[in-house]
């Protein structure tokens, strides 16, 4: 049984192909999560701010992204943009863009939640102590907000990583799709190929996502003491 497993992975470039697929998955996840963090923080601060029209605008953006299925967004930016406006973006660009659009909106909402959940007197007391506005933000509000933010950010990150297989609907062969290609071809010779290949992919996803959970638990524990 184990023989057939090894054979599936040893056949030709199968293992290298899975790693290339993993490369696509990681590229989208890492870039999109990184950009989401970068854009999400200022977005969240604006959502929590006092500029009414800006708040409504961002609220609309957040609701739009939240209501739209990711798949629909991928199709719109990959197919419809090209079909109706002749803007022909590559599948990778579209994937990173859509995942960032989604991630930044959710990240913004997390930041907004974390900031507004801090009691009003945190600002008042900080100002009363004579701190400047910058100091109030960076020394008092943000450090406290980050702690409240952490569980949500970890959750969002792993959700984004696990949603990346949708990109194969816009013809981008990620880890899962390469796995499926291998299963379809070697399934006849090795009936258990699907178990081995999908099992292997499960382990890879676990190896990527579990350390993120561990890291967040470590941070929470450190900050608690």
């Amino acid at each position: 049984m184990l023989d057939s497993a090894l054979s599936v992975f040893r056949m030709g470039r199968n293992m290298a192909r899975l790693m290339e697929g993993l490369g696509v998955t990681l590229e989208i996840s890492v870039v999109a999560v990184g950009l989401s963090l970068i854009f999400g923080v200022p977005l969240g601060l604006m959502m929590a701010g006092s500029n009414r029209p800006l708040k409504w605008l961002l609220r609309g953006y957040l609701e739009f992204v939240r209501v739209m299925p990711i798949l629909a967004l991928l199709f719109i930016f990959y197919y419809s943009l090209s079909k109706f406006w002749n803007i022909n973006l590559s599948a990778l660009t579209v994937s990173i863009f859509v995942f960032t659009l989604w991630g930044a909106a959710e990240m913004g909402d997390l930041v907004r939640g974390a900031v507004t959940s801090l009691p009003r007197h945190q600002w008042d007391s900080a100002r009363a102590l004579g701190l400047s506005e910058g100091q109030v933000s960076f020394r008092v509000i943000i450090p406290q907000a980050i702690r409240r933010l952490l569980p949500g950010v970890i959750n969002l990150t792993t959700r984004m990583i696990k949603t990346t297989p949708f990109v194969f609907f816009i013809n981008l062969p990620d880890l899962l799709k390469v796995g499926q290609q291998i299963v379809e071809v070697s399934g006849l010779r090795y009936p258990l190929a699907s178990v081995w290949v999908y099992g292997f992919i499960f382990i890879i996803y676990f190896v990527i996502c579990y350390p993120i959970s561990l890291f967040s638990r470590y941070l929470e524990r450190r900050w608690a003491s």
Binding site: M11, G12, N14, R17, P173, K177, Q180, Q181, E184, V185
Partner: peptide
Amino acid sequence: FGDKPPFGFIDENG
């Protein structure tokens, strides 16, 4: 196709 043998598929060498 990338996953529909024997019409269009990717072999073990990619």
